[in-house]
Design a protein around this nucleic acid. Structure first.
Lengths: 109, 109
DNA sequence: TGAGTATATGTCGATACTGACATATACTCA
DNA sequence: TGAGTATATGTCAGTATCGACATATACTCA
């Protein structure tokens, strides 16, 4: 791609891809996935700790038992939003959430 | 609603709502919103700190300038997933993210 | 054994979210 | 003034994600 055209595209607000960008993104994607996995573990841990069934937790966050199962199974159809909602609804404390985040970040650097 | 019907619904995995649940959810919803706002601030801070334009950041995460603007404006069409992606892509360090989380949790209790 | 309870898996229609794209506003600086 | 650059706002079609729902599997315990 010509440099001037690239500059014009960038000026207009477009994303411009490259192999390097792709590799970089993979590293960041891995970091996000690692974070999700940490939060998922925290959800199950928090739920069990408070002796809540999946149905109990589902009621608390107005979701369904099958969604909770999918959250804990790491199903790809589950968003970070939903995971964090579940973590909050499960009664995880400030410190629980913080610790999860910290532990995850420590792992992935 | 009859109790036995409620029990059957619960056994089948359904959510069952109530005014109390609703109020509880609002508190948890507020907590999630507060978290999002903290992370949004962190994105802008991290981006500025590293002297990246919105276009630069958009390229890094294969998104568009307009999306970054919407993230930073707190547009309701932006998910937690996207905010965290932006935060990671902006080059926020382990400590930055951790600090954001800690500060947020301290605020919301 | 079989009834009760908890969890897992699969499907579906509705909605939320996405990047792409156009365009507007705002702020340099020559 | 006006060209260049950064940010903001609005729309849209495609895709991701949602809760709802059915059903399967697994584990107690009487």
């Amino acid at each position: 791609m010509k440099t001037d055209k690239l500059a014009r595209l960038q000026a207009a607000g477009w994303k411009v891809g490259s192999a390097e960008d792709f590799l970089q993104l993979n590293g960041e994607e891995a970091r996000l996935v690692a974070l999700k996995l940490s939060l998922i573990s925290a959800v199950k841990e928090s739920r069990i700790k408070r002796k809540l069934s999946q149905i109990d937790l589902a009621q608390r966050m107005k979701s369904s038992q099958s969604r909770i199962a999918k959250i804990e199974a790491g199903d790809p159809s589950v968003s970070l939003d939903l995971i964090v909602r579940a973590l909050i609804a499960s009664g995880a404390t400030t410190r629980d959430i913080q610790t999860t985040f910290t532990a995850n970040e420590r792992m992935v650097g």
